[in-house]
Design a protein around this nucleic acid. Structure first.
Lengths: 218, 218
DNA sequence: CTTAATTTTTAGACAAATCTAAAAATTTGT
DNA sequence: ACAAATTTTTAGATTTGTCTAAAAATTAAG
């Protein structure tokens, strides 16, 4: 399994998760930041290896074998992200690029021991669940912050938009995973809200509140 | 800089360290477990990038730029080995293969933070010095155990042969880095010796004692 | 000091992963 | 339902890193 094949597999897995439909070649190309012709070539190769089913012009779906491989890569990615944040003082927005490289290291023992070293974490620094050794991914009950009503309380459990810009913005606002959030006021006009994060009271836009996931606690 | 280029650079660096002469193409090919023609091709490419000086039929020498790059890779390799042994319970003989992969991860911050996390170690699990951020490699005063005389004492500071077989053998004998070793008896006939390692008294062959480095303490 | 052995290089081929440009299939709009 | 727009595939080229086989240079031996 080459680096590039693994990256395609991961991209296709994510796209299939979003739509639960067969994945169009163009969508793959876009996610991989490459040309449709390159995506076609790769999809054919992965199809020969039985990691996915591909019908020309009909898009692709991962086979169980392909899915299992993709999940392993995601497990590695999320464990490494956790290590970087917990032990090497990386911030949320810095981890992705490095984890993209580390996720391709091949060693079952390494990843098993890393998991143990980290204390078998359930989620990564963005709140996304870390698949277990068998490839099971826990479903995390979450709502977008925007859905909460005045007086509602919740715990920050993740973000939807993992872009560096958004994560830096959250850092500035001192919002991080595990924080207690209470809705003080909702503004009907522009859907902005005033919230209390731990001890601080701040105002955030509708766009921001739609990208923050919480587990409701009241 | 591709993965393969980095591996060649590292190989050439090590060969140049051993002989302090210009490195023959065949030696490179042998170390890389590839064919001479492949080594020629690569050496030409690295020469164009000014990482080494290459004269057809005359062998190659790294430029300062090439040397500096090779040392960075070695620094990463040795830091990762230290991490694997210290934090993930790998044994000496298991680390090499994984470190060969990890050494190619590109991130200055990662390696800086890893160094800090490990407490700025001076040597890796085999006793080899870890280059500092500027690329300086500390010289470690060491002798082969075989050179010690009866009654001499030393501390185990490294091994010459890092093969899995030899390292496993040392593990079985309970010899590891930092152990106090005392020569009880030298056998002139076959150059084997009886030594005391910490509390245990054992007998080792000439071959083994020539592959263990010690810092003499008496 | 020539010939033989060895080392090294060149030439040509191949696989992986990509690209551009053009052809083919599918979907959409009227 | 037919032409237009879009999506997808094919064909052919390129780069990286490798190989084999043959040629060229160097070194060793009688």
């Amino acid at each position: 399994m080459t680096l590039s094949e693994e990256n395609y597999l991961k991209a296709i897995f994510n796209l299939e998760e979003q739509t639960h439909k067969s994945v169009p070649t163009n969508a793959i190309a876009e996610m991989m930041e490459t040309k449709a012709s390159s995506a076609t070539d790769m999809v054919k190769r992965l199809s020969e290896k039985e990691l996915l089913k591909y019908k020309p012009y009909q898009g692709t779906r991962l086979t169980p074998k392909g899915k299992s491989h993709a999940v392993k890569v995601i497990r590695k990615h999320r464990l490494w992200e956790t290590f970087l944040v917990e032990n090497l003082d990386f911030s949320w927005d810095e981890v992705h690029e490095v984890a993209e490289q580390l996720e391709h290291i091949q060693s079952d023992k390494l990843i098993h021991q890393l998991d143990k070293f980290l204390g078998y974490p359930k989620t990564d620094p963005h709140g996304d669940p870390i698949p277990d050794e068998e490839g099971n991914i826990a479903k995390i009950k979450k709502k977008v912050l925007a859905e909460l009503q005045q007086e509602d309380e919740g715990i920050c459990v993740g973000v939807d938009d993992s872009s560096s810009a958004f994560l830096k913005y959250l850092d500035k606002l001192d919002i991080s995973l595990g924080n207690k959030i209470k809705v003080i006021e909702k503004e009907a006009f522009d859907n902005s809200m005033v919230i209390q994060v731990e001890e601080n009271t701040i105002s955030i836009s509708s766009l921001a509140s739609k990208n923050i996931y919480v587990r409701k606690t009241s």
